[in-house]
């Protein structure tokens, strides 16, 4: 009988501790599948950061080096400078990358650091308990915006990926979501492409994943999934934001 489905080798046989309906477990699985398919488990290094993403080492059988809040891309760059033949990727949420880490992100992208960023944007700070994030859409009720996010106080959501796409050193920037099998397949393809861009040495690559956080949106899992690809995606349109010539071609 032909095997059509199995646990990826780098995905540890552990039950996810994430909340029901959380997007992280799905992103972890897609990452594991891509790493398996590219055959890069032996030379991949992940840089997990703070927030819910700090749990990554429990689930991926890879070399992992934790970064302080905001410093994921610098840590990844330092690793990559020393281990140029490795695939180095940072895994950060919006409360990390788009807040304290935004300055680092701009410079890392602009310098064309040949690293990959998995940027999980669920529109609020999850691990600290559902507060406003830099990417929270206007009007959204969170623990710290009880009347909804108001532009006069907190400004508009920050589209960090769009800013990074404008820098000279970014090679591939894409935004994906997880709300349907088609979107999940696109998300996986974007992850594979981002790694391929790094392996090719084309420059900085980033995949922003619009992910659901039902726990802190106070929604049912399916409603949260729809919100991430609906209300959140209205602010952060899905698609390829940057793809320089030569990406994905045989080198």
């Amino acid at each position: 009988m032909k095997q059509v489905f199995k646990r990826p080798a780098v995905l540890r046989d552990e039950e996810f501790a994430y909340c029901p309906g959380c997007g992280h477990s799905l992103v972890h699985r897609l990452l594991a599948e891509v790493i398996d398919e590219l055959g890069i488990a032996g030379r991949s290094i992940a840089v997990p950061a703070t927030g819910c993403a700090r749990l990554l080492p429990q689930y991926l059988d890879l070399d992992l080096g934790e970064a302080p809040r905001g410093l994921g891309l610098s840590v990844a760059s330092g690793l990559k400078r020393l281990l140029g033949d490795h695939v180095v990727f940072a895994y950060q949420g919006e409360g990390d990358l788009a807040a304290l880490g935004a300055g680092q992100a701009l410079h890392a992208a602009n310098q064309g650091e040949p690293i990959t960023v998995i940027y999980v944007n669920n529109g609020l700070l999850a691990q600290s308990g559902g507060q406003m994030a830099p990417t929270t859409p206007p009007g959204t009720v969170t623990a710290t915006t009880p009347r909804g996010r108001e532009g006069a106080t907190h400004g508009a959501p920050l589209d960090l990926s769009a800013a990074l796409a404008q820098t000279a050193g970014s090679a591939y920037v894409a935004r994906v979501a997880l709300a349907s099998p088609e979107l999940i397949a696109q998300a996986k393809a974007a992850l594979a492409k981002a790694f391929a861009v790094q392996i090719q040495g084309q420059g900085f690559s980033l995949v922003e994943v619009l992910a659901p956080c039902p726990e802190h949106l106070h929604l049912e899992p399916l409603e949260a999934l729809a919100w991430s690809a609906g209300e959140l995606a209205q602010r952060f349109p899905l698609g390829v934001l940057k793809d320089i010539p030569g990406n994905g071609e045989e080198s």
């Binding site: 302080p68 410093l71 610098s74 840590v75 760059s77 330092g78 690793l79 400078r81 410079h107």
Partner: peptide, 26 residues
């Protein structure tokens, strides 16, 4: 060797963290 001028001291510290994780004297 490699000399990298970075935009901020925290960025330097982050790169130091990464390079030290890879086992180098930095």
């Amino acid at each position: 060797g490699s000399f990298v001028q970075v935009p901020s001291e925290p960025a330097a510290l982050g790169m130091l963290l990464g390079a030290a994780m890879a086992g180098a004297r930095v």
